[in-house]
Structure formats: structure tokens, C-alpha cells
């Protein structure tokens, strides 16, 4: 579709031309649509699910609870991946996710078990620490123009180190309020969801709203699309960048809380390398690693696909857990190549 050099004297003819042109371009645009990767991932999920249904029908795969368990077992990953989506959309990367999650489990367990603080006090502390950590990283990235990769790498070391500083041993959580929260279930008729899964879905909804219906969300896309332009357009790109890492830190801490709830212990080695799972989920969900394009809904499907791989491998029985990593890597590769092909075509 190109500009038309038609004279503007008759507004009406202009209008019809607009209609015709947009109809003609619609088909062409479908191919270049930014939603395409999300659709691909969603389709992949459905196909995998159907294949699972076919193969393991007799082993209870068709139970609705198997589907709901995807949310229960991966709620924390979804929250972490949502945080990572913000960072990646803005064109950055956050390697500290796994460490912040691990640190949060340790901090929570330590405060609750060793210091005897009530859970209701511990939660805001944990979230605040995570968000503050993210803020600091964002501040350094923006103000000193150091690559996000390196700054968040320092964050990875720092938080993992702080885990070990709290304790080398894992701390089991026996607090009754925690375990009652962990056991709480929301019945849905066909099955149930845990507190963690519900919180994860709420986070997803909030993230969707923020990214699509607030100026901050649009700025995230803008600086991911072209940071220099965003600056020349008068957008506060520095504040946005810092905010993005703060959001990621907050989400990681929240994911840490959910993980604590899920596993009911703090351990200095919890969630090692989970940043890779989060990044993989974001990329498989169709978000460009170079920033500026993608949807948080895609991230949901990315997490679900990763979760489904795990379930299928469990159901398969003969397959070992490492196939999860291999399958993740293969999917990652496929999506990176798809993205590459899409951006390459746009260039021409």
C-alpha cells in the first residue's frame, strides 16, 4: 500500500478510496501482522493438547484438572514471564529473574520461620525488596548507559549471593497461615485452581491493561520500537526504562512468593536458571527479543506450551525430564528463525 497522490478537493471520493485501499491491503497485511506469532503459538498449544488427548486419553489426560494444573504448576513462571515481557518489549533483558525468585523464597521463609514475622508483613517486604532491586538495576542501566545484560548479570550474582548469605540450608515453612493459603482452592465445577494460579491470572490481566490502555504501556512499546525516536518525540524514555525494570523486579518477587507457596520452603538454589525459562516463554509467545513487538497474551501461551511439554513428558513416562530443555531449545530456535524471517521481509 502506498501513498496516493490524489487531489483532496473531493472528500467523498477520498473516503471510498480509503475503503477500497484498506480492503485490498488487508490480505497482504495479514501476513505481516504482529499478532501472527501469537496465533502460531496458540495453535501450537492446541495441537499439542489434542495430540496429548489422543495419546494419553486412557491415562486421564482428558480430565479438565490436567488443563487447570498447567496454571497451578506454572503460575509462578507466568508471573515472572509477564515481568520479563515488559523488559523485552522495551528492548532490554533481565537475567536476574531466577535469582530474585530464589532470594524471595529464602527471604520469606527466613522472615516467617526464623524471625517469626506474620505473613501479612512479610509479603509487602518481599515485594518491596524485589521492586527496589529492579529499580536499582534500571537506574544504573539508564543513568550510566551500561548494557542491561551486564547490569542484570550483576543482579543475578547479587541476589543469588544474598540467598546464601541468609542461609546455606533450605528452610522449610511450617507456618499454618502459609500452608492454609497454599492449600486453598477455588472450585470451578470441573476442577479447581490454586491461589497462586488465580494471582497469576490477575497479574496477566493487569499487565494486559497496563500495556494496552495506559500511556506507560504504550511508551514501553515505543522505546522498544526505536528508543532514539521515542526520545525525539518527547517521551520520557529514561523514566520508562527504570519503571520497566522495577516492574520486572516486582513480578520476580511476586513469582518468588508464589513459588514459596507452591513449594513451601525457601532454598538458596530455588529457581536457578528460571530467567531462561521466562525469556524462552516470552520469545515462544511471539515477542521480539529486539523489542517493540509482542503481546502479553502470547507470553501466556508461551508458558502454557512449556508447561504442556512438561506434562506430556510426564504422561509419556519413558521420556526423561531433559527432553523439556531440548524441546524448549528447539522451539526457541524455531521462533527466533520465524521472527528473523518476519523482520527481514519487513525491511524490503
Amino acid at each position: 500500500m502506498s501513498t496516493t497522490a490524489q487531489p483532496p478537493q473531493t472528500q467523498n471520493s477520498g473516503k471510498t478510496a480509503t475503503g477500497a485501499a484498506s480492503a485490498a491491503s488487508k490480505a497482504a497485511r495479514l501476513l505481516a501482522d504482529r499478532r501472527l506469532p501469537v496465533v502460531v503459538t496458540a495453535t501450537l498449544f492446541v495441537v499439542m493438547y489434542l495430540v496429548g488427548l489422543g495419546r494419553y486419553q486412557n491415562f486421564g489426560f482428558a480430565e479438565p484438572q490436567v488443563f487447570l494444573n498447567l496454571f497451578i504448576d506454572n503460575g509462578y513462571l507466568l508471573v515472572a514471564a509477564v515481568g520479563a515481557t515488559f523488559v523485552i518489549l522495551s528492548g532490554g533483558i533481565d537475567l536476574s529473574v531466577g535469582s530474585v525468585i530464589g532470594f524471595t523464597t529464602m527471604l520469606t521463609a527466613w522472615l516467617v520461620e526464623k524471625q517469626g514475622l506474620p505473613v501479612i508483613v512479610v509479603i509487602p517486604i518481599a515485594l518491596g525488596v524485589g521492586a527496589f532491586g529492579g529499580f536499582l538495576m534500571g537506574y544504573v542501566i539508564h543513568n550510566f548507559e551500561i548494557q542491561p545484560f551486564i547490569v542484570t548479570l550483576a543482579g543475578l550474582f547479587l541476589f543469588r549471593g544474598l540467598c546464601l548469605v541468609i542461609s546455606k540450608e533450605s528452610i522449610a515453612i511450617t507456618d499454618s497461615s502459609v500452608s492454609s493459603m497454599a492449600q486453598a482452592q477455588a472450585q470451578l465445577g470441573v476442577g479447581f485452581l490454586s491461589v497462586g494460579a488465580i494471582i497469576a491470572l490477575v497479574v496477566l490481566a493487569v499487565a494486559f491493561y497496563v500495556l494496552h490502555y495506559t500511556r506507560f504501556g504504550r511508551r514501553v512499546y515505543a522505546i522498544g520500537g526505536n528508543e532514539h525516536s521515542a526520545m525525539l518525540m518527547g517521551l520520557p524514555q529514561g523514566g520508562t526504562k527504570i519503571a520497566v525494570y522495577t516492574v520486572s523486579g516486582f513480578c520476580s518477587a511476586l513469582a518468588g512468593l508464589l513459588f514459596t507457596l507452591y513449594i513451601q520452603s525457601g532454598d538458596p538454589l530455588h529457581a536457578t536458571g528460571m530467567e531462561l525459562d521466562a525469556i524462552a516463554a516470552v520469545v515462544i509467545g511471539g515477542t521480539l527479543l529486539t523489542g517493540g513487538s509482542g503481546y502479553v497474551v502470547g507470553t501466556l501461551f508461551g508458558v502454557l506450551v512449556l508447561g504442556l511439554i512438561k506434562s506430556i513428558i510426564q504422561f509419556e513416562g519413558t521420556l526423561s525430564s531433559w527432553w523439556t530443555k531440548i524441546a524448549t531449545g528447539v522451539l526457541l530456535c524455531a521462533f527466533i528463525l520465524i521472527q528473523r524471517a518476519m523482520t527481514a521481509r519487513k525491511k524490503t
Partner: peptide, 22 residues
């Protein structure tokens, strides 16, 4: 166990010193 914390400190210091802006 504080090894990693030191390492983080080293990364930060080295990178800050290399940053012209800093």
C-alpha cells in the same frame, strides 16, 4: 556463600568504571 555477592560488587564496579557516563 558471600562469594557471589563479592562477584556482583566486582561486576558493578568494573562496569561503572568503564562507563564514560559514570
Amino acid at each position: 556463600q558471600t562469594n557471589l555477592v563479592f562477584k556482583a560488587a566486582v561486576v558493578i564496579v568494573v562496569c561503572l568504571l568503564q562507563s564514560p557516563k559514570f
